[in-house]
Amino acid sequence: MTHLTKIALLLGALAVSACTNAGRFGQDDPRLDGSAGAGAGAGFVPGGAGDPSSPAYFQQAIGDRVLFLVDQSSLTAEAQATLDQQAEWLLTNSDYQAVIEGHADEQGTREYNLALGGRRANAVREYLISRGVPASRLRFVSYGKERPIEICSDESCYAKNRRAVTVIAGSAVS
């Protein structure tokens, strides 16, 4: 088993436990209307959103996600502004790792969307690296169209599903 696989397994364990947390998507960026999730307030680390060093602050005040145009993985100016702040936070709070999760809307075939989500997540990862975040602290994964947060079948939902979410994975990976 390669070193990379070991890391993948560790991160995988985190990702799986996160996936079983029904409240996770309920704590979304307040700019989104949050209709997808019930049960907000899962609070998986100490430190509320008011604490600038907390992952909750990262998620809610900075914004943990960026959105993409149809079938695109290039970063908009708005996305870059969000990622500049994400990079700053990650540089300040250097104990944390992050997994960038890439997603696609449902308008695409399953395999292609998996690859497209990977492109999006990697675009975020490369941008954060270009802003000085060490590559070793950043992993990415794609969920393709498997994990929509909005469930209607029109552009208002698709726009929010075409996303890359920077999930703070805690400092457990060592």
Binding site: G12, L114, V141, E146
Partner: peptide, 22 residues
């Protein structure tokens, strides 16, 4: 995701996120 039968039907290849990654 996407299971695929072997030619004789004895095995199936598929993609799983069991490790957290596809």
């Amino acid at each position: 995701l996407a299971p695929r039968f072997s030619p004789t039907g004895d095995r199936v290849l598929y993609t799983s996120y069991a490790t957290g990654f596809p």
